[in-house]
């Protein structure tokens, strides 16, 4: 039996902003508070699920504070909601709080920086299917590429709380260490170059960091760390291991290849541009193989995903 992958109560909700701060060189951390019905809906939020956030009515930050490369985008109006994951969800009696880590890449994320404590936000969710925890899992290998961190961090927390019997290890890759959405820089920890990344270490999850420029941890792709771990632990039965990954599609494709070679289950969280997030528009197509056939079909990232079994996904069809 696998655990429930989705909270069933989709809806349009209002959240109150508890805090919104620049938490690292490249990212911000926004904390929401849900009350009443919304608190209940989001208490059922599963790691890997997402929300659709309406930023169309938020103020634009003053132009001189906007990085030059983003100034043209800043002048663009926002019409559609934007999809975001949660990196942490905490349920306390009638209140649910949730953390959203975001990077500034365009008009919507720029506007989000002007949210202040006490502001309200319009959120549709929880949406999509999250990660599944299959019975018999002993080891969860969590693979992150850059801004793919939030849902994996959320999964790490839920594993540590709900499945203390499962050993999790995180593999965190990035172009450069400062591009990771981490509030504290990873500290050198072990001789084998594995680093303590506080946000995972506090959950009892050891981690390895890989950067393209060697600014922290292993210099090279994060998949090399994953391969090495699998080699060093080749005696572990493959049925006990599940790989969970979120990051750029190229990384997900490489992770899927490695898992496939070893016949290990692998779940990937995919991204697509979304207009609706709720199955109305068909904008978020993911090409998937049909079992036992050469044929492919399009599934919807927002409804059938964003988490997919890596074996079914045809990677590399969208490099947006």
């Amino acid at each position: 039996m696998t655990q429930e992958r989705a909270s069933r109560k989709k809806g349009s909700h209002t959240a109150t902003v508890l805090s919104n701060v620049q938490a690292g060189e490249c990212f911000w951390k926004l904390r929401f508070r849900f009350e009443g019905e919304a608190a209940q809906a989001f208490a059922g939020f599963r790691p890997g699920q997402f929300i659709q956030f309406d930023t169309s009515e938020l103020a634009i930050p003053s132009i001189e504070t906007i990085p030059v490369a983003l100034r043209n985008g800043a002048r663009r109006n926002v019409l559609l909601r934007r999809p975001f994951s949660f990196s942490d969800v905490t349920v306390e009696s009638n209140v649910t709080t949730a953390d959203l880590l975001y990077c500034i890449v365009g008009p919507a994320s720029l506007r989000m920086t002007t949210l202040r404590e006490g502001d309200t936000a319009s959120i549709v969710g929880p949406l999509g299917n999250g990660f599944a925890v299959r019975e018999g899992t002993r080891i969860a290998l969590l693979v992150v590429g850059g801004m793919g961190l939030p849902p994996i961090r959320c999964l790490a927390k839920s594993l540590s709380v709900e499945h203390p019997d499962i050993t999790a290890v995180a593999f965190i890759g990035s172009r450069t260490v400062n591009a990771l959405p981490l509030e504290e820089r990873p500290a050198v920890f072990e001789e084998d170059l594995s680093l303590s990344v506080p946000t995972f270490a506090t959950l009892g999850v050891p981690s390895m960091v890989a950067t393209d420029d060697g600014s922290a941890g292993h210099r090279g792709p994060v998949t090399e760390c994953l391969s090495q771990w699998l080699q060093e632990n080749a005696d572990r039965p493959r049925e006990e291991i599940v790989v969970y990954a979120c990051g750029p599609e190229r990384m997900l494709a490489a992770v899927a290849r490695i898992a496939n070679e070893k016949d290990i289950d692998c779940q990937v969280s995919m991204e697509r541009r979304m207009a609706c997030g709720i199955g109305l528009c068909q904008s978020c197509a993911i090409e998937c193989r049909l079992a036992d056939s050469d044929e492919t079909i399009y599934k919807l990232c927002c409804q059938d995903g964003p988490v997919f079994d890596a074996r079914e996904v045809v990677f590399g069809t969208d490099d947006a």
Binding site: N77, V78, L79, R272, C281, Q282, S283, T296, D318
Partner: peptide, 20 residues
């Protein structure tokens, strides 16, 4: 019909383009 490869949509000022 399978439809077109993604990206199938892009937002513009006060609108969006779709090629589903």
């Amino acid at each position: 019909r399978k439809g077109n490869p993604t990206p199938r949509i892009v937002e513009t000022d006060a609108g969006m383009l779709n090629a589903i």
